[in-house]
Write a protein that binds this DNA or RNA. Structure first.
Lengths: 232, 232
DNA sequence: CAGCTCAATATTGTACACAATCTTGACCGG
DNA sequence: CCGGTCAAGATTGTGTACAATATTGAGCTG
């Protein structure tokens, strides 16, 4: 890890607020609270062992990132998602990541190509190890994340990275690989290798087309057997 | 100057944080502080007449919207804009608003078409009145904003509106009309009318093409005679 | 019994005091 | 004279008390 002595994402505050943010976010990713649950500032403050002030900062960040919904004088609720949210998010990802791949094809540098290749190697090694144990596939998520981030940043649009981060609805996307069938994992790895080839040959249209296929395939896996809540 | 802290409106429950947010945002849009200026919580609290707590909430929102930069234990600075930022933002607007127009063409409802027509009427009335007085063109901004928002929401993608807002609400986009030449204002009004026609005929490709032209034209006006700061 | 009123309670919003951290500038040594 | 060091001041981060507002549920009314 590089020298990051403190929260560095631009909205971080002090130490307590960061800790509260990390703890609450981790609970949300573990589905600790069902959708619609009110997160009470006092209770969180007691559980985490800080005052309400840093809790409020943490909750505001989680609202901004789409984990929670906020209402004045009422507070925060855990956000649920339905078919409509998944459709919206994947639709936007198709637009934005395809745009990123198209631009990256003519801008990416050799060092970034090398990073992508190494990430492919690492992901395939994880796949190899996880053949009978789907839980191990969770290790793919951070590698896949970095793969896409390298392409996003190679696109050379300063605002694209934060926009894409705000679109990617973490609670949902984080578990994508769990829904994949084994052959879909293989196909995903193939897409990654093909993307590297397309980018390396500076072929913008090819790069964009592979990325579009890649995200469509993820959408199908996400929608399969999905059970959605009733939205009020 | 005119900040009266008691009973500022008829609603009676004006939240201090909302009021602080509105006041600071208004100052930022009026270029009250040069880029790089530190906004001190204590001073803002004194000027606005509330405590630091709602000021901090307002500053967090403005950081999230891209008006300010934040550093831990240092506070907020007014964000400056360079050529790279403008390129990035208009590039993203082209992608996202074109996507919105393409989708809206087959989803927009008669009531929304009517709204767009009325907004065109209102904008053209403002243009008429402002022929010799470019300052009056600032009145176009909220109308133009609503025009684009109607199309964005007609696209039927739940996540698109906040994403576009986070890209578009940048301070410089809000001042676009001041940079337009008179014939460019006319062309912009023409684009709006053409968009309504394209949407009304449910022609997705036509709608997308007009929107793309519309934003390209705005980009050219924004870049003309622009003087950029030296970025650190 | 359904629906409403309204007071008691619970929860968020704000103010303020203190702690932690950064910034500034004088002082010192080379 | 220049650069580093460190203490004093300035500014943000956190804790806590109180005010404003929403929620809840009992009691009332038709």
């Amino acid at each position: 890890m590089t020298g990051r002595k403190r929260d560095d994402d631009g909205t971080g505050h002090g130490h307590s607020a960061d800790r509260a943010y990390a703890i609450i976010r981790s609970g949300l990713l573990r589905d600790e609270w069902p959708a619609g649950t009110r997160l009470l500032e006092t209770e969180l403050a007691r559980r985490i062992g800080v005052s309400r002030t840093p809790i409020r900062d943490a909750l505001r960040r989680l609202v901004n990132e789409g984990f929670l919904e906020y209402a004045a004088n009422v507070g925060c609720r855990v956000r649920g998602w339905g078919r409509n949210d998944i459709d919206s998010i994947f639709d936007l990802r198709i637009e934005l990541e395809t745009y990123a791949a198209r631009r990256a094809a003519t801008r990416i540098r050799p060092g970034e190509i090398r990073q992508l290749t190494e990430l492919c190697d690492a992901m395939e090694a994880v796949v190899e190890r996880s053949l009978g144990l789907p839980e191990l596939r969770d290790e793919l998520t951070p590698l896949n994340d970095r793969f896409h981030t390298v392409i996003t940043e190679a696109a050379g649009n300063a605002r694209l990275t934060p926009v894409l981060a705000s679109v990617t609805f973490a609670p949902m996307v984080l578990r994508t690989f769990r829904r994949y069938r084994e052959e879909e994992v293989m196909r995903s790895m193939g897409h990654h290798r093909e993307l590297v080839s397309a980018l390396e040959s500076a072929n913008a249209d090819w790069s964009a087309a592979v990325m579009r296929s890649h995200i469509h395939a993820g959408y199908v896996a996400m929608m399969r057997d999905a059970v959605f809540e009733i939205e009020p």
